[in-house]
């Protein structure tokens, strides 16, 4: 899994690539733990280049989302590809997260 973190004015954009699964989720959790120390903890995770996400990966995103909300922020998602989007829809995680089609829209949602 590739992970790139880009701090912006009001949020951090984390871009993931490859597989987000039981073997790589801990890297994301560590990164999110660091981001969630700021208040407000605002994170946008770009999943555009993620080609596989399993339940451990989803749990890492959920955990990060809760952590951010505890710190008066939020973790939002953008760029979900079809298979990933399908998992979110089938499991109704699309109701738990705010999801945007593009990174620009995701960033704008925090700046609004």
């Amino acid at each position: 899994m590739e992970l790139a973190s880009r701090p912006l004015d009001k949020l951090t954009v984390i871009t993931l690539g490859g597989r987000l699964d039981a073997y790589t989720a801990s890297t994301l959790i560590k990164e999110l733990d660091q981001r969630a120390t700021a208040t407000p903890a605002n994170v946008l995770v770009n999943l555009n280049s993620v080609n596989f996400i399993d339940s451990t990966g989803l749990a890492a995103l959920v955990q990060g989302m809760k952590r951010c909300r505890e710190h008066k922020g939020d973790l939002r998602l953008c760029g979900l590809q079809r298979p990933t989007r399908m998992i979110f829809e089938l499991t109704r995680l699309d109701k738990a997260f705010e999801i945007f089609a593009t990174e620009a829209e995701g960033i704008a949602s925090f700046n609004g």
């Binding site: 998992i87 829809e89 089938l90 499991t91 109704r92 995680l93 109701k95 738990a96």
Partner: peptide, 23 residues
């Protein structure tokens, strides 16, 4: 939040049932 759940009627196409709430 469980998937996959697939409903396949005797005469019709199989379909994925979407969860009604998150896990």
């Amino acid at each position: 939040g469980h998937s996959p759940v697939i409903y396949c009627p005797a005469h019709g196409a199989a379909q994925l049932l979407i969860a009604d709430g998150t896990a």
